[in-house]
Computed example of a mutant assay.
Amino acid sequence: MTGPDHATSTTAAEDEILADVADGVLVITINRPDQRNAMTKSAAEQLAVALDRLDSDPELTVGVLAGRGGTFCAGMDLKRFQLGERPVVDGRGFGGLVQRPPAKPLIAAVEGWALGGGFEMVLAADLVVAGASAKFGLPEVKRGLVARAGGIFRAPRVLPQAVALELLLTGEPMTAASAERHGLVNRVVDDGAAVDAALELATAIAKNAPLAVRASKALAYHSRTWTDDEAFERQTAYTDPVFASDDAREGPAAFAERRAPRWSGR
């Protein structure tokens, strides 16, 4: 599966966020290339709408978030910030994403720079694919600000503490190779190939039972602070509905009959 050549566009070209469907995957693209995809209030609101669509549409299984024009996102639009605009959606935070990520898997496809809030959107995603020249940074301290869109607490969760603190305290960026080495990035690919690689990863996820995928994501995040005893007790709220589903019967039947499963999401 590839990107735009086999996708159906669902938004106008002039919109700040584009949403395209490719084989059950929603490809969401920040469309402000002349401004390095810096986030605005309008773009954040449109992105929130796209994420709501991802979660509500049963035909969609995975989301891919990318930036148009060789840059993922340079953070918030500082010119708009100086005029009092904040690229935040109530209840969803920066970019309409960081405070409430979607329940379905979201893959960040990063080309070029992911800075400030742009990097914090990457940290809010579940998986990350990056072009070889991609760079990730939290330069807020250089501007008299702090990374309060999730960077301060999410970076130390996914990176070694010393590495995360270096990003936070120096404001200097990290390369894609370093991000992969420290476990932030799943795959580093040739420049320009991040979206296609993310779509390949999304396809692998989309082949699986949607209820099981969604429950696995939710439980993996919610259980981070639980003890093992708590996890075994609390996981039943997530796992019992999966085991009682039609898909739980379809999976073994398809395996026994040596055919591809036909998931219903029920």
Rank of each mutant, 00 (worst) to 15 (best):
D5G: 04
D5W: 00
H6A: 13
H6N: 13
H6Q: 11
A7P: 00
A7W: 03
A7R: 08
S9G: 02
S9P: 06
S9F: 10
S9R: 09
T10E: 12
T10P: 01
T11M: 02
A13V: 05
E14M: 03
D15F: 02
D15G: 03
E16C: 03
E16I: 01
E16R: 14
I17M: 11
L18K: 00
L18D: 02
L18E: 06
D20C: 01
D20Y: 00
D20Q: 12
A22C: 15
A22D: 10
D23T: 11
D23M: 12
G24M: 10
G24V: 08
V25M: 10
V25T: 11
V25Q: 09
L26H: 06
L26I: 00
L26A: 00
L26R: 06
L26F: 04
V27L: 12
V27A: 09
I28M: 10
I28S: 08
I28K: 11
T29N: 14
T29C: 08
I30Q: 15
I30S: 14
N31M: 11
N31Q: 12
N31C: 08
N31Y: 12
R32F: 03
R32V: 05
P33E: 14
D34Y: 12
D34M: 14
D34K: 15
Q35M: 14
R36Y: 09
R36D: 10
R36V: 05
N37W: 05
N37H: 11
A38K: 11
A38W: 10
A38I: 05
M39K: 15
M39P: 01
M39C: 14
M39L: 15
T40D: 15
T40Y: 07
T40G: 07
S42C: 13
A43L: 07
A43C: 07
A43S: 13
A43H: 03
A43Q: 13
A44L: 13
A44Q: 06
E45I: 06
Q46D: 14
Q46L: 10
L47F: 00
L47P: 00
A48F: 12
A48M: 10
V49D: 09
V49G: 01
V49I: 11
A50L: 09
A50C: 08
A50S: 15
L51Q: 11
L51C: 10
D52M: 06
R53G: 12
S56Y: 15
S56Q: 15
S56C: 05
S56G: 09
D57M: 01
D57Q: 06
P58Q: 05
P58G: 00
P58I: 03
E59H: 09
E59Y: 06
L60I: 00
L60H: 04
L60M: 02
T61D: 07
T61E: 10
G63Y: 08
G63W: 07
V64P: 05
V64N: 01
L65A: 04
L65G: 00
L65C: 04
A66I: 00
A66E: 12
A66Y: 06
A66M: 04
A66L: 01
A66W: 03
G67Y: 02
G67Q: 08
G67E: 08
G67W: 04
R68W: 09
R68I: 02
R68T: 09
G70L: 00
G70V: 03
T71A: 04
T71W: 07
T71V: 06
T71N: 15
F72L: 05
F72G: 01
F72E: 10
A74P: 10
G75N: 08
M76E: 02
M76G: 06
M76S: 01
